[in-house]
């Protein structure tokens, strides 16, 4: 399964003619019609001129999205490098089995994201928006493993102005945090799980995590909650290619038009709501249906 991106060159008369990304047809349709797909759909970078730094492995079973560094020192001389189809494409997330979470962890996360962003008459909540899928895929990828961060010892506690000083990666923090949370709930609620509590008990518990009044074993409750909330909201408002913001529900909620890039006709139309619906990097579902 592969993908290509093609770009027309630019008309330097102030206008631009771009071919949008051209993905394998089945992938494009699959993404929007949501059939049974597996794992994380990832693209292979061709990069004959090493213009891409991402290399991805693909499989039809559940897999880890692993970003492999393939950089090489290169020399550029006498002309701009150019090759058709060379691009540093974003990864694509597809529905399917959990990649990072266990089934039990995922059920808890889905219940949590649906309280952080509850469904209401304005639109879906965190669960139906795919926030748990988003977090799952992020934790399985570079973010989950602190890729690119400075992780050399020694680790010493510092002031809050010095930032995070802990060797644990986000993936590890989720694993430990969810376990500690499950243990806490089990002990204080007669063996129940988070998802078995009433909505108001769930909210109470989350509030107590937020304000730090709950003590979790070996896990700082406040920091764990802050990370959960940050990642949930990121999933709700990030481009749908990452698995959350499904059908652009986050953008529709607030009126953000998404990955558009030309508002020239609208800058000076003051006090008029921008009328066009949002569009994601992969377009919109209705585009694929027409195609």
């Amino acid at each position: 399964m592969g993908c290509l991106a093609r770009f027309k060159n630019l008309n330097f008369d102030g206008t631009f003619a771009f071919d949008l990304l051209w993905f394998g047809k089945s992938a494009l349709i699959n993404l929007h019609r949501g059939p049974k797909a597996f794992g994380v759909w990832v693209m292979e970078s061709k990069a004959p001129l090493c213009l891409s730094r991402r290399s991805f492995l693909a499989s039809t079973t559940a897999l880890l999205a692993t970003s492999v560094s393939v950089v090489h020192a290169r020399t550029f001389h006498q002309g701009m490098p150019w090759a058709p189809g060379a691009a540093d494409l974003p990864p694509l997330t597809r529905p399917g089995p959990w990649v990072f979470f266990t089934a039990d962890e995922a059920a808890t996360i889905e219940a949590i994201v649906d309280r952080l962003i509850p469904p209401d008459d304005r639109g879906p909540g965190g669960k139906d928006a795919g926030c748990a899928v988003f977090i799952d895929r992020q934790l399985a990828g570079p973010y989950g493993h602190s890729e690119g961060l400075y992780t050399r010892p020694p680790f010493m506690p510092g002031s809050s102005t010095q930032g995070y000083q802990n060797p644990d990666s986000p993936a590890g923090r989720y694993r430990n945090g969810l376990k500690a949370l499950a243990d806490h709930i089990g002990e204080s609620n007669g063996g129940k799980k988070f998802r078995e509590l009433t909505a108001s008990d769930q909210d109470k518990l989350l509030s107590n995590l937020e304000n730090g009044s709950i003590k979790l074993k070996d896990v700082e409750a406040k920091a764990f909650f802050a990370m959960l909330l940050q990642d949930t909201q990121q999933g709700f408002f990030a481009d749908p290619i990452y698995g959350g913001n499904r059908d652009m529900v986050g953008w529709k909620l607030i009126g953000f038009p998404g990955a558009r890039y030309d508002y020239r006709d609208w800058v000076e139309r003051h006090n008029e709501p921008y009328p066009l619906p949002p569009v994601g990097i992969m377009g919109r579902a209705d585009w694929a249906a027409k195609g």
Binding site: A5, F7, F16, D19, L21, L89, I281
Partner: peptide, 14 residues
């Protein structure tokens, strides 16, 4: 054209 074309440059997360 290869690193941030308008086809996918508008990616806040990335």
């Amino acid at each position: 054209a290869t690193d941030f074309p308008p086809s996918y440059a508008q990616d806040e997360l990335r």
